[in-house]
Nucleic acid binder design. Structure first.
Lengths: 138, 138
DNA sequence: CTTGACCTTCCAGCAGCTGGAAGGACTATC
DNA sequence: GATAGTCCTTCCAGCTGCTGGAAGGTCAAG
């Protein structure tokens, strides 16, 4: 199987597959003409990688997952630990993004979006943080 | 004001401030000793940038926002458009991450996480996509 | 024999910093 | 005046995970 076919069947760009070989995630054989010769097992590994990447696992996590995948004597606890840590990172990212969305959508809603220069978005970005937003009652 | 003080007051690392100068986001003066001499306006700009970056705006968006900020004849519509586009990207990212979280948390929950090798997470990653999950009824 | 689609390697670049080396400048203390 | 410690400077390299492009080899069809 040449790289083009593997690319088509895994959905990974050929460039990416070459890169994965370079960093040692797959090791296809070589034909006499120098072309990479992928076995079924290579294609399978690449498909595994594609799915792990699609779940947001880092390359190093993928490497670890692949090693566990190939290790018949693995403990599922090791896999689970890895996945849980990743899940937490995802949740953390979601929280960060939701905070951004919250702030940003407030600003956007407050902005007239017309020809005038007054703009709560720029105002919000330009303002020094307030020491304490008191109610004005001493 | 030296870079250290600006860093402390904006929360930006000195390295980042130097980088922002390099890419033309700020242009502090220089003392005779070669040290950067930040004016209040520089500090203000950097604080603006820090907040815009914290909302996830790209550097190029920040550059545009800064230009609008400094332009008294801007139209708030331009700012709003930029912010809305960014908001959409954030929402897109959130959706992607939530899909990941969904899939991943299902896998994690299904995994015993013990000493045995059987692991739904690895199984999920290793499986070829099904042609059609029929009910078995022909 | 040429065309075109494939494949190869290598090098550069993206974003947005971050780390480290090597060295100058300033402040305080002895 | 020497020394120590902290600040500042520049420059270069590296991080993640690819992606694009140049220059060239290979193969199948006509």
């Amino acid at each position: 199987m040449n790289i083009g076919e593997v690319a088509a069947r895994t959905g990974l760009p050929a460039k990416t597959i070459r890169y994965y070989e370079e960093i040692g995630l797959v090791s296809p054989l070589r034909d006499v003409n120098g072309y990479r010769a992928f076995r079924e097992s290579d294609r399978h590994k690449l498909a595994f990688l594609a799915r792990a990447r699609a779940l947001g696992f880092s390359i190093e996590d993928c490497r670890a997952l692949l090693a566990l995948y190939e290790d018949e004597h693995r403990a599922s606890a090791d896999v689970k630990r890895l996945a849980e840590r990743h899940l937490e990172k995802i949740e953390e990212k979601i929280r960060t993004l939701e905070a951004m969305r919250e702030t940003l959508s407030e600003l956007v809603e407050a902005c007239a979006g017309d020809h005038r220069p007054d703009c709560p978005i720029l105002k919000g970005l330009g303002e020094e943080e307030r020491p304490a937003p008191s109610t004005g009652v001493a």
